[in-house]
């Protein structure tokens, strides 16, 4: 059973979102996603300052199995990336909602986060996908 953090927002593409006190939106992939991808070996976000639309790729993660796009849950500008992942991509496997965060995005519209899935909605999505 995959872990879901109650205080986060989610997307159908298995991204999670945390709104930080400084207004930046922290994003990563869910426990379900890291489990499906397997051991992660490489993370390649786009360059800082890059602008992304909601649903657009902001980088790539590679697991032992395959390369997968990372999709930005919101429109905005890439403001920070987790540099620890450069030498320790396995942090995403070990702590997907904490030390394994991938990027921080400065959202064009802070309110856009509210339209994303709640933890309960995401749990329903996983249950439906599992069938």
């Amino acid at each position: 059973m995959s872990a879901i953090a109650d205080d986060l927002k989610y997307t159908k593409t298995h991204e999670w979102v945390r709104v930080r006190p400084d207004g930046l939106v922290e994003v990563g992939i869910t426990d379900h996603a890291q489990h499906a991808l397997g051991d992660l070996v490489f993370v390649e976000p786009l360059e800082l300052g890059h602008r992304v639309a909601a649903g657009e790729s902001y980088g790539v993660v590679e697991s032992v199995k395959a390369a997968s796009d990372l999709y930005s849950p919101v429109a905005g500008e890439l403001a920070a990336v987790n540099s620890a992942l450069g030498s320790a991509p396995e942090l995403i496997n070990q702590d997907p909602y904490g030390a394994g965060w991938i990027a921080r995005i400065r959202p064009d519209d802070a309110a856009s986060v509210s339209s994303l899935l709640s933890a309960a909605d995401y749990a329903k999505l996983l249950a439906a996908e599992g069938q």
């Binding site: 397997g38 051991d39 032992v64 199995k65 396995e90 496997n93």
Partner: peptide, 8 residues
């Protein structure tokens, strides 16, 4: 089986 937890 692809793996039983961690392939690495």
């Amino acid at each position: 089986p692809l793996h039983y937890g961690s392939q690495i």
